[in-house]
Design a binder for these strands. Structure first.
Lengths: 227, 227
DNA sequence: TGACTGTGACTGACTGGTCAGTCATATATA
DNA sequence: TATATATGACTGACCAGTCAGTCACAGTCA
């Protein structure tokens, strides 16, 4: 279908388009295997980068873990740096999509936010995805492209969405503190802390993230059902 | 004299007692210069580690920035790794001391916490110290010793102190949400988010940390003076 | 169907450069 | 002078990225 241009990704490497004029669909199992390999590389790279950080990760290790020769990595990615940047996109995009695609305009604002938090809890906190967030925090300053992408695709959207919910909550009288709309970060902060906590301190002092988020929402909305 | 053991410091670190118990006053300018050099190295190392992370930082760069030859670094630190670990201790300890040493048992709990937040704002958020916190989050998983130290000296103490304040606030009727005492993290979360935000996103969207913390406290204590 | 062939995905030994850590030498101090 | 310090050229390990060669497979022909 999309052929090489999709798999090779980067700018160069465009090996002309053989079947282009033809228009055939050589979706042989060759292409399928290539996709599998690519996926294996992404998976392996994520593990290694999370475990060691960008600079300390060896491509040899990624290759070994992915069950591929080192050269193969370069068939899919331009170099270590752009592999890292692509990796973040590849992993983050679906998560954002999934978290974004659940605004069932039903029930109270609290219920909406609770549904969101519950999803975030399952999808991110304490998972590989959560570690990736920590990784972004860690490497962000050295990868402006990553930090920019993350801000644009995740942070700014998340803040905007939360602000909208907060304003709705204020309008409906569910939320007292009007100034909260100016700092949606406050709403999200405990969730972020939970992510970091699980990565760093879980073994010292386990944290019941779900319960903590509940308490935090009680703080904002008042005890359950108590306008 | 104490010789190497004092200057090499590795594990011992913290200045110790240059003049030892003995009466001598070896406060020659030799020892003084050594201290200056050591301080310069620590300062330079912090800059470099914050800017590039542990693995990507070159000792040559640290030496150059400190105005010292590379070999000199090894007169003060065992190796790169233990230099990093010591560095964290050297920088963190005084901050904790300063933040800890301001419990003037006066006024309301809110005032106490506000004083604390105000100090944290000045001492940490948006400063080199704040960057160091981000660095610890970044490198923690690869440096269990650092993560452990940080948990022991900073996190657990901070959590305990906050919990005590919250319980006091509840007892005095200043704080409604009783469950908050179970998750002092919630109280601290926005401050941590502010630290990270300043490091990563300030250039995209500046954050008025002071104002945000105020709003957060309003959320916990109710609008100013309303009980 | 089976044999033949061109293609390009895949491999991994190799290269060039980088950098932590060393140590023989030089300099400052007592 | 003797000793404590400081220096920076040097070494050996390490690793990102390359590329000549291999071979599985799709397509073609008999």
């Amino acid at each position: 279908m999309m052929k090489k241009s999709t798999k090779l990704a980067n700018k160069s490497a465009l090996s002309a388009e053989p079947a282009s004029a033809r228009g055939e669909v050589p979706a042989s199992n060759r292409a399928a295997r290539a996709q599998e390999r690519r996926a294996a590389i992404v998976e392996a790279a994520m593990e290694e980068f999370i475990a060691r950080g960008f600079a300390a990760t060896r491509l040899d290790d990624i290759a070994k873990r992915a069950g591929v020769a080192k050269g193969t990595i370069y068939l899919h990615f331009k170099d270590k740096e752009s592999m890292f940047e692509e990796l973040v996109r590849i992993v983050i995009v679906p998560v954002v999509a999934r978290l974004t695609a659940l605004p069932p305009p039903t029930g109270s604002v609290r219920d909406l936010i609770e549904a969101f938090a519950s999803n975030f809890l399952k999808e991110v906190i304490g998972t590989r995805r959560g570690d990736l967030v920590r990784l972004i925090v860690a490497e962000g300053p050295r990868f402006p492209a990553v930090a920019d992408f993350y801000y644009r695709e995740v942070v700014s959207r998340g803040i905007a969405a939360m602000r909208a919910l907060i304003e709705l909550g204020i309008a409906r009288g569910e939320i007292r503190e009007k100034d909260l709309a100016r700092y949606p970060q406050i709403l999200v902060a405990p969730a972020m802390i939970a992510v970091i906590w699980q990565s760093l301190f879980a073994r010292h002092a386990p944290l019941d993230a779900q319960d903590m988020l509940r308490v935090h929402l009680d703080l904002i909305f008042g005890e359950r059902r108590t306008t």
